[in-house]
């Protein structure tokens, strides 16, 4: 058994596999498949100051090797989350990363302040949700705005702060550097790529929101590239995600520079994907005589 533990911003993860925000609710559903304590951590559903209804259905469409979604940040609001969901999550013996989103800087600050009084381990700042006009993506697409929101939230929280980056930008490494300079403890990437499908029989977009975020295997090569670029540009840890479905994918993303990986869309086909990835990473390390998973982080021998 290899050492699977990793450390991000002083927080110890028993393994580097984390279900991604928006695919795992607040953990209750997948807790009916396996003990959540097996996971390295959990990134919660994006949570806002007030409750949100989300977009109209259809909110999902299948694409070649991927899916488009336009949920639109449906969530019960931070107060109900802290009251009803967080106590249950904190019992699960895994790292709890609360993903927060908002429409204004003030909203992010307010949500972060409320979390400051809780035991949640980390905050993931969602400045990259593509499905809500004011869902934060506006903050994530320029260096100045990404830096601004990071600095504002940094001022009100001592918790380790992860900033989740949008791939819908020209220079993701530049944005990563900007949030690092303002005190981000880690970055996670990639959020979904903005996409669209049209039903040619009706002439209507498949998603009621017209556009949505692309995820799944289709985006994996983009994720590898962006994780590699960002890991080479910043000193803070990178959490990689985007189409990770197998242990080999996770290892590849870690070689590109990720300290940990998040798994999302793969769970819809295989609810046990995170567990199988953890086991698969361990097998790979044992087979190759590698004693710690940390040895593979950023180990790609780039040409």
């Amino acid at each position: 058994m290899a050492d699977l533990s990793v450390n991000i911003a002083g927080v110890e993860f028993k393994n580097p596999v984390i279900p991604a925000s928006g695919t795992f609710g607040y953990g209750r559903e997948y807790g009916r498949f396996y003990p959540l304590s097996k996971l390295g951590g959990i990134a919660t559903k994006g949570t806002t100051l007030e409750s949100r209804l989300g977009n109209l259905a259809p909110r999902i469409a299948e694409t070649p090797s991927g899916i488009l979604n336009s949920v639109g940040l449906q969530n019960p609001g931070i107060d109900k989350f802290i009251r009803v969901e967080l106590p249950n999550l904190m019992k699960q013996e895994t790292v709890i990363i609360v993903n927060i989103a908002g429409s204004t800087v003030e909203e992010y600050i307010e949500v972060a302040k409320k979390l400051e009084e809780t035991d949640a381990h980390m905050i993931e700042l969602n400045i990259s949700c593509p499905n809500v006009k004011e869902g934060g993506v506006a903050f994530g697409v320029s260096c100045d705005s990404a830096a601004g929101i990071t600095a504002a939230v940094r001022k009100v929280t001592k918790k380790p702060l992860i900033v989740k980056l949008s791939p819908n930008v020209t220079d993701i490494a530049g944005i990563a550097k900007a949030v690092e300079a303002e005190g981000a403890d880690a970055v996670s990437l990639i959020n979904t790529l903005l996409g669209m499908r049209i039903d040619i029989r009706t002439g209507r977009p498949v998603l009621r929101n017209n556009v949505g975020g692309l995820s799944g295997k289709a985006v994996f090569p983009v994720a590898v590239r962006m994780v590699w670029q960002v890991a080479n540009a910043v000193k803070i840890p990178v959490i990689g995600m985007g189409g990770v479905a197998t242990a080999n994918d996770a290892i590849e993303l870690m070689m590109a520079g990720a300290t940990a990986v998040q798994v999302g869309t793969a769970m819809f086909a295989n609810p046990f994907a995170p567990i199988e990835i953890i086991d698969g990473i361990n097998e790979y390390l044992d087979k190759n005589g590698i004693s710690s998973v940390r040895e593979i982080i950023g180990s790609v021998k780039s040409w």
Binding site: G25, E29, G54, A57, R59, N69, V71, Q74
Partner: peptide
């Protein structure tokens, strides 16, 4: 409705309803 996870985690299969007097 078009569905994702099927177990209530991904929230894609939404439908407008009234419960406890609230939409």
């Amino acid at each position: 409705e078009r569905m994702g996870c099927g177990v209530g985690a991904c929230l894609v299969c939404s439908c407008k309803a009234i419960r406890n007097g609230q939409e």
